[in-house]
Design a protein around this nucleic acid. Structure first.
Lengths: 339, 339
DNA sequence: CTGAAAGCGCTTACAG
DNA sequence: CTGAAAGCGCTTACAG
């Protein structure tokens, strides 16, 4: 007598006096059973507390209803916000999501991709890391749908969803301009970062030009998107260009860094210096004063990316990449300069 | 000719001219093959780029090398820090982790547990939510190892790893006391929260008593651990007890809330009011001034919990629960009062 | 040391 | 409408 572990489809078929094939049919709602059998089967399932074994299902259907998500680091607020949207959508569609840490420089990429491959995930989300050619090749070789989140470019080998970095930076800078600022500095990410680096610098420069201002490299200090390098860069920038009345930081963490720098130096925000950030993490409302920033719809980006991935997985066609709009959310770090 | 998809053990056995049983043996390093066959097999595996199908393996071995992690919400900085440690340890041991959002009040608990059950995860981590009896029953019925993270109590049905809340609050308050403060308020979580609520309140009270001070309920304002309720509670507390010289907030977010409250009211921190937080999230170093707080070793808690879970899963014995020590990390929000 | 066979829990033609 | 059988890709007794 087999009385341990989970009941199997076999147990159900015995109890309901039908074949396992029939049970499988009602389970999967496939044509081919009478209303009467359906009831018998459902009753047996109910009584046994039967739940189909996805592992067995996966073996024959070649679908695991599981996707993998690759993050450079899962613990950042940025990753966390995306993951929230990703998980929510996956759950809604009855998928499981396996999260993986690639390491900042992708050092664990090969290892986690190997694991995901052996687990036969149905698809992959690759988040926010410059996708180098070796990685792209590896992902293509996997032969599972991949969508890029918060990275990707026109020539990308995979569809992507990201926010418009150029536009976001342009909006941030224009917001400062419209508030009357003319001496505007920037804390940027690395210019060689073709995703979140150079496009935001260009957005900043273009906004300046659109107001007839000449951008100068001296007004840009480069950091690494995090708080500490942002703080340091802020110090350098303010030393170098003490006449700045406003600073655009290309991430909220870096903006918190300039707030900290101002705090240390007794510079009042926004009275003496205005600052605007980028991302709209929860951090942005927790600073003092609360940070004006440009919002990337992170949670929605995560959700949208998952929808897109599901569409490829289930539908098969390659969807178009998506460039989401950003918007500035006003809080209290930007001062309007009166003429 | 079968030339698509991943190569199977069958392909390897053909190419190496041995049986699949033999291939399986060398794969799993089981006794029963000569050095010569081993080489043949390895060569075939290499040439084919073969990787065992974990789904098929899982079906027979009843091991998926996958664990589930239940969070109330994955996007908090708190969850993110834990997840970092959890994922790192899992990856090191070659396990995959599926993250699930239960919803703040556990509304999606049943749904995600069902999914995890169907996927036949080998174990479960339940994070930081009051584990009510219904949930506990459900988890027990799953018959897979479970470890609680950042929750749990002596009578717990599952082993847990958490930080010592009473001690942490005691340390925070004593730190204030030692700095010379005597009028110390608290922003607490809900007293009915028996994990992070009442124990921290008791730690605060006990520290006061140990200095011969009588704790008063008027000096405690209740909030919900998040920034916004913390901000609100801070306002109420300062209205009610304007003579406070220091405030202990039971989370960093709430501490950021009291910083914000002070900022709005022109109260200088730490000159006019000292504040100490709880958690030591990355947020704590990004506030201005940087927040003195008591550190919960979140990443290590995640790692330790995963180690513990793996031990139960692979070893079978029930490990002892772990109560980790906290420590205060000094930054710049506490002023020493000179006699 | 090695292989044939059964079986893990399902789904899916194929017959009837 | 229903069932017997094959098969998904492995592992594991059982023989030899």
């Amino acid at each position: 007598m087999k009385r341990e572990g989970n009941p199997t489809i076999r147990d159900v078929s015995c109890k309901a006096n039908v074949s396992v094939a029939t049970v499988s049919r009602v389970l999967n709602n496939q044509p081919g059973f009478s209303e009467k059998t359906r009831r018998k089967v459902l009753k047996a399932i109910e009584e046994l507390g039967y739940h189909p074994n996805q592992v067995a299902r996966g073996l024959v259907s070649r679908k695991t209803r599981t996707v993998g998500v690759l993050f450079p680091v899962v613990s950042s607020m940025f990753s966390a916000a995306l993951l929230q949207g990703i998980e929510a959508e996956a759950n809604r569609r009855d998928y499981g999501v396996i999260v993986c840490n690639m390491g900042e420089k992708g050092g664990r990429f090969e290892r986690v991709v190997g694991m995901l491959a052996e687990k036969r995930v149905d698809g992959l989300l690759f988040v926010s890391e410059w996708l180098d050619d070796r990685f792209a090749e590896r992902l293509k070789a996997l032969a599972v749908p991949v969508v890029l989140v918060s990275t990707g470019s026109p020539g990308s080998p995979f569809p992507y969803v990201k926010a418009d970095d150029f536009q976001g930076a342009f909006l941030a800078t224009r917001h400062l301009l419209e508030a009357g600022h003319r001496r505007i500095g920037m804390i940027s990410g690395p210019p060689e970062d073709r995703i979140a680096g150079s496009p935001r610098i260009e957005g900043y420069r273009n906004a300046l030009r659109s107001y007839g201002l000449a951008p100068s490299d001296r007004d840009i200090a480069v950091a690494g998107f995090d708080f500490h390098t942002g703080l340091k860069a802020a110090g350098e920038l303010l030393d170098r260009s003490p006449d700045l009345t406003a600073v655009f930081a290309a991430s909220d963490e870096m903006a918190a860094g300039v707030l900290a720098c101002c705090y240390q130096r007794g510079i009042r925000v926004p009275d003496d210096l205005s600052v605007i950030g980028y991302d709209n993490l929860s951090l942005a409302e927790m600073t003092s004063p609360p940070l004006t920033t440009v919002a990337q719809p992170l949670e929605r980006m995560g959700q949208t990316a998952m929808e897109m991935l599901l569409a490829v997985m289930e539908g098969g066609e390659q969807p178009d990449s998506l460039l989401l709009e950003t918007s500035v959310v006003e809080r209290f770090t930007v001062r309007k300069i009166l003429k």
